[in-house]
């Protein structure tokens, strides 16, 4: 299991691994939004938490199809399926590797991008906390979507269509935590809901992803 994680991390940072693409995308979205809505500081400060969440979510979505597609193309997925690893373990590790290479970097750069959007002073802490809690759910849900569409031609667009509705609760509670935090309101309720969704998804979705992957390998 550890070796699979190490391999995926190593592949992500080597040439052609696509590490950093998500970060660059996140940066571009954050730059484009003020260009689209205008430079007024008050407006940007108000929408900053939401923009950061949307940007992180889209950056995450962008890299989902790599979770299984590469292993599927070169045949390693078949070989992994015959290895002494439970399928649930394989999908969990894949989701963890995706989170470490995509989700976590997004969390780390989010405050920096918050400066570009004039995020209010109190918002920095909560944007990091909300993304830190919510991004594992994004990775795990995305892994489920990637498992559903593995091996499909033109699976990329379908993957977005399947995954985005599933992202709704995470986005709503995550952005709510960030927004309330930025505006200085109590964040307890959405924070608990976000944590609940994240833990629930991490605990239960790998079973669905594994079932789906087995069907697709058949």
């Amino acid at each position: 299991m550890i070796s699979l994680l190490m391999r995926d991390l190593r592949l992500a940072v080597r040439a052609g691994g696509g590490f950093g693409l998500g970060l660059a995308f996140f940066l571009i979205v954050t730059v484009l939004v003020p260009l689209g809505v205008g430079p007024e500081t008050g407006l940007l400060a108000k929408i900053a938490p939401g923009i950061l969440w949307i940007g992180a979510l889209l950056a995450c979505l962008l890299s989902l199809d790599r979770i299984f597609a590469l292993d599927w193309e070169d045949g390693s997925l078949d070989l992994l399926a015959t290895a002494p690893l439970p399928m649930e373990g394989i999908v969990s590790i894949k989701a963890l590797a995706h989170w470490l290479t995509t989700g976590l970097p997004l969390v780390i750069v989010a405050p920096g991008l918050g400066v570009l959007l004039s995020l209010p002073q109190g918002g920095y802490f909560w944007i990091v906390v909300s993304l830190l809690l919510g991004s594992p759910a994004l990775s795990v849900i995305g892994t489920f979507g990637a498992a559903l569409t593995v091996g499909l031609k033109r699976g990329g667009l379908l993957l977005s269509l399947l995954v985005l509705p599933l992202y709704v609760p995470t986005l709503v509670f995550g952005a709510e935590v960030a927004r309330r935090g930025a505006e200085g309101f109590a964040v307890q309720t959405p924070l608990l809901m976000l944590a609940g969704i994240s833990f629930g998804a991490v605990a239960l979705l790998p079973f669905a992803s594994a079932a789906v992957l087995r069907i697709n390998l058949r």
Partner: peptide, 11 residues
């Protein structure tokens, strides 16, 4: 997730 979304948007 549809049920979760329902509660999320209510909130």
């Amino acid at each position: 997730f549809a049920v979760l979304s329902r509660y999320a948007v209510l909130f």
